[in-house]
Design a binder for these strands. Structure first.
Lengths: 140, 140
DNA sequence: GTTGGTGCAAATAGTTTGCACAGTT
DNA sequence: AACTGTGCAAACTATTTGCACCAAC
């Protein structure tokens, strides 16, 4: 995810408007490594904008996703999570507590390299690597 | 997924019963490389068992998944897909038509190796690798 | 003033569950 | 006969949408 100022410029250029709600969401996401769900973000932003609606959060996340500013992670079968870090990287997902963490392991190949390799058959947009299991707290 | 006869033995051993519906589902899944959703399986099995319910399909898939006979794939944000091939392997997911295919690329590391490497922090049960993008039919 | 955003409420869709009856063992 | 499975219907939950009013531009 870019600097807030860059996103603001980008939004304006595309005819999107900048609202306090959106600014709050941008701020909440920047440097956020917790992989929040839409609901998580909604609950947090409520502290700053007590009358914001879930719909606004939801639609803003969609917009940011469509612009490639954030990734929508579909690791958790129960809900989507959002990640402002759009660089290629892997995740761990704990089946017990649902926590998603960044994983140091590198797949050894980027989405771009992957795309070059198999472009005849499939056009790769992103390349996702997940380790699913139990985190240190949950494995007894 | 094991041979049907082995699954039957395993089910009986665990106190689960063998019904024509379940046998039909076992047969439909064996050697199935199409990564069907529960709905897909339901529609297929209806041709053989016209009065089977979605609930039965759903519960049987859960049981097979819990026994490790099949993998529940959560690549498609819209629905779960099922794969009788439980060996480590990667998938492609087409954002446009939703098709899931097996991918030749090997992550270069198995879930077991992965687990050994990072066992201090996280207990890896499975290791999932997905290329998300557009299939040959959908990329214009 | 024009256009897009917000927030409410309702619809959608996949998934999951409770329960009575039927089938397997 | 005992106990699990089946099938129906309903509940649940995350997600998505329609629309009237509001705010950014």
């Amino acid at each position: 995810m870019n600097q807030t100022s860059e996103i603001v410029t980008r939004f304006r250029k595309l005819g999107f408007k900048i609202t306090p709600q959106r600014l709050g969401i941008f701020k909440l996401l920047r440097n956020n490594h917790s992989h929040p769900s839409a609901e998580d973000i909604y609950r947090e932003i409520l502290k700053v904008h007590p009358s914001i609606s879930f719909t606004t959060v939801y639609k803003t996340l969609q917009t940011l996703r469509d612009l490639g500013e954030i990734n929508e992670l579909r690791i958790d079968p129960e809900r989507a999570h959002y990640d402002p870090n759009v660089r290629d990287h892997a995740h761990t997902f704990c089946k017990s507590c649902g926590k998603i963490s960044d994983l140091e392991y590198q797949p050894g190949i980027s989405a771009k390299e992957m795309d070059n390799r198999m472009s005849a058959d499939f056009e790769v947009h992103s390349f996702q690597v997940h380790a699913v299991g139990l985190c240190s707290q949950c494995k007894t």
